[in-house]
Design a protein around this nucleic acid. Structure first.
Lengths: 83, 83
DNA sequence: ATAATTTATGATCCCAAGATCATATTGACA
DNA sequence: TGTCAATATGATCTTGGGATCATAAATTAT
């Protein structure tokens, strides 16, 4: 599955989905990522802003990668239109 | 352009590239994103871990989006092989 | 329903991120 | 080369993230 994340909260959601898809408990993920289970819980529920570093630790443990790309075209005015 | 980011440092790099591609100064980006120029400088140079929130503020100002996906196949052992 | 596992919460401590201001360094360019 | 814009660095202060431990609540299994 592929997740488009527009906010830290959505990143947390993606993490939860991916973790479940891999049938890992928060504890399992905690061990594999070096991030505490309590912290993972908070991140998955969007209860904490998070450090990027921590997110990468988790994503890496889930074998997920991050792609940064231009916002999918369509709708609204782009920077090019403005400048 | 599309950036694969494996670490906070690479995110910073992607941000710098995208900012330049849009011909914006750090100051411009600071104004548009609400993040301080000094902070942007540090992030672009990987001199600071960063909060996810801040990253999204910046990416959003650059009209970039984040996709989280399974690590591109190939090489190494996957979780499925292990469990 | 009860026991066991998983997830959520709550508190404390430490440390680092970011705001903010000042200034140094670098880069463009007339 | 001297000036102006852009970027980097450095210090202080505040706030919040995450480690850590304890435990509550919810979920799953028996």
């Amino acid at each position: 599955m592929k997740y488009l994340a527009r906010s830290p909260k959505e990143v947390g959601h993606a993490i939860r989905e991916a973790r479940k898809a891999r049938k890992l408990t928060q504890k399992d993920l905690a061990i594999r990522s070096g991030v505490w289970q309590e912290t993972i819980s908070k991140i998955e529920n969007g209860l904490s802003g998070t450090k990027l570093e921590t997110i990468f630790d988790i994503l890496s443990a889930l074998e997920l990668e991050v792609t940064i790309d231009n916002r999918s075209k369509g709708s609204s005015t782009s920077l090019e239109d403005i400048f």
